[in-house]
């Protein structure tokens, strides 16, 4: 599994996360897809926009809503060589959050930089 896909083509994948974590299945599903995709050794980036920034809020505890606490998975992404996490500054700030509220290391970028990240990506998945 260390080899690249046949032909060795590496593309820039971008996973766009725009939903809050627990009200719908989107965020958890996105993580599953990212982890499965990680086996293919592509150039993977994750973007957190709008309510998607809430996915990264630290100290989530789902015990009392009886669902899996998948927020812990974000800390494991690094081991899957998924290391590029981008958070849109405007989304974070308009929700009253700062970098200190987040559970993992991310790069905070502004709308202009996010625009470029999207434009430069070759394959985009939306959640």
């Amino acid at each position: 599994m260390e080899e690249e896909l046949e032909g060795g083509v590496v593309k820039k994948f971008l996973y766009v996360n725009r939903r809050a974590p627990h009200g719908t299945i989107y965020a958890h599903e996105a993580l599953e897809v990212v982890l499965i995709g990680a086996a293919f050794d592509q150039d993977v980036s994750l973007a957190f926009i709008d309510d998607g920034v809430f996915q990264l809020k630290k100290e989530q505890d789902t015990a009392e809503i009886y669902t899996k606490n998948f927020s812990k998975i974000y800390s494991a992404l690094e081991m899957y060589d998924v290391e590029k996490l981008y958070v849109e500054k405007e989304s974070l700030e308009s929700r009253g959050l700062t970098e200190d509220d987040l559970s993992v290391d991310v790069k905070i970028i502004n709308s202009k930089e996010m625009k470029k990240l999207i434009t430069d990506s070759e394959v985009i998945f939306n959640f």
Binding site: R18, I49, D50, E88, E90, S111, M114, K115, K116, I118, T119
Partner: peptide
């Protein structure tokens, strides 16, 4: 939903 608004913010 804010999808359109976000799109307009982030569209090249």
């Amino acid at each position: 939903k804010n999808s359109l608004e976000t799109c307009l913010r982030l569209i090249e």
